[in-house]
Amino acid sequence: MRFRLGGKGEAVGSISQAGTVDRLVVSENADSSTAARSISTTVGFCGSQPLAEARAAARAYLSQVQGVHGIPVSERVMDMVQLVVSELVTNSRKYAPGPCLLEMTTNEGSVVVSVWDTDPTLPTALAPDPGRVGQHGLEIVMSVCHSFEVRRQPVGKLIRATITLADDPNGHPAGYLL
């Protein structure tokens, strides 16, 4: 399947379900020519690939942001980003019939986690219910993010969650809601 994501840092590539090749790093860039440096990576998922790979991609990306680019990332923020990635990619793999793309971009003190999939149906958070088992993923994501948005695309939808990199004095990320 071929895909194209438009805009700055356009990613173009293909994902094949043939054999065991079902993960493809599409683009990785760091723009140091501007004062507000932007670092991003995009990973494609298809087939029945383990969700652990999405979490590992998030950890590897944030480790690079910290180690190579010198932007501090606390362990709490690292865990938070992995949680958001896990929830969004799980929903995509569970409800969308085709591949999904995970993009992580760091700029101006935040990590933006974007997940695109082929299903045009927009997700909705269920009313809080402590007795409900499961289906709390979107509630969790929305509660730990600084901002959250969902948009239909010409094909499918894009879900974008922004997580603040800096922890506050109480040890919580700045976007964390108690």
Rank of each mutant, 00 (worst) to 15 (best):
R2M: 11
R2T: 11
R2E: 12
F3Y: 03
F3G: 02
G7W: 01
G7M: 05
G7A: 04
E10L: 14
E10T: 11
A11S: 06
V12C: 07
S14R: 12
I15G: 05
Q17E: 08
Q17S: 09
T20K: 12
T20G: 06
V21P: 00
R23P: 04
L24Q: 06
V25F: 15
V25G: 08
V25W: 09
V25D: 03
V25T: 15
V26G: 08
V26L: 09
D31G: 13
D31T: 02
A36I: 09
I39W: 06
S40Y: 07
S40D: 08
S40G: 15
T41D: 01
T42R: 10
V43C: 04
V43A: 02
G47A: 04
G47E: 00
Q49W: 15
P50Y: 08
P50C: 03
E53P: 00
A54G: 05
A56I: 07
A57F: 06
A60P: 00
A60Y: 06
S63F: 13
S63M: 08
Q64K: 15
Q64T: 15
V68L: 14
V68F: 11
H69E: 05
H69K: 10
G70E: 13
P72T: 11
P72F: 10
S74A: 02
E75P: 03
E75A: 15
V77S: 10
V77L: 06
M78C: 11
D79Y: 13
M80R: 07
Q82W: 04
Q82V: 05
Q82D: 11
Q82N: 05
L83Q: 14
V84T: 09
S86K: 07
V89A: 00
N91V: 11
R93A: 15
A96Q: 01
P97D: 11
P97I: 09
G98K: 12
P99I: 14
C100R: 08
C100T: 05
L102Q: 08
T105R: 07
T106P: 00
G109P: 01
G109L: 10
G109N: 04
S110P: 00
V111F: 02
V112H: 01
V112Y: 03
V112W: 01
V113A: 02
V113F: 05
S114R: 12
S114M: 08
P123D: 05
L126C: 10
A127Y: 09
D129G: 12
G131M: 11
V133R: 14
Q135H: 12
Q135F: 13
I140D: 06
V141W: 07
V141Y: 07
M142A: 15
S143Q: 15
S143D: 14
S143T: 09
S147T: 15
E149S: 15
V150Q: 02
R152Y: 02
Q153G: 05
P154M: 02
V155R: 08
G156R: 00
I163N: 02
I163P: 01
T164M: 14
A166H: 10
D167R: 00
D168G: 14
P169N: 12
N170A: 10
G171Q: 04
P173A: 06
G175E: 06
Y176M: 10
L178G: 13
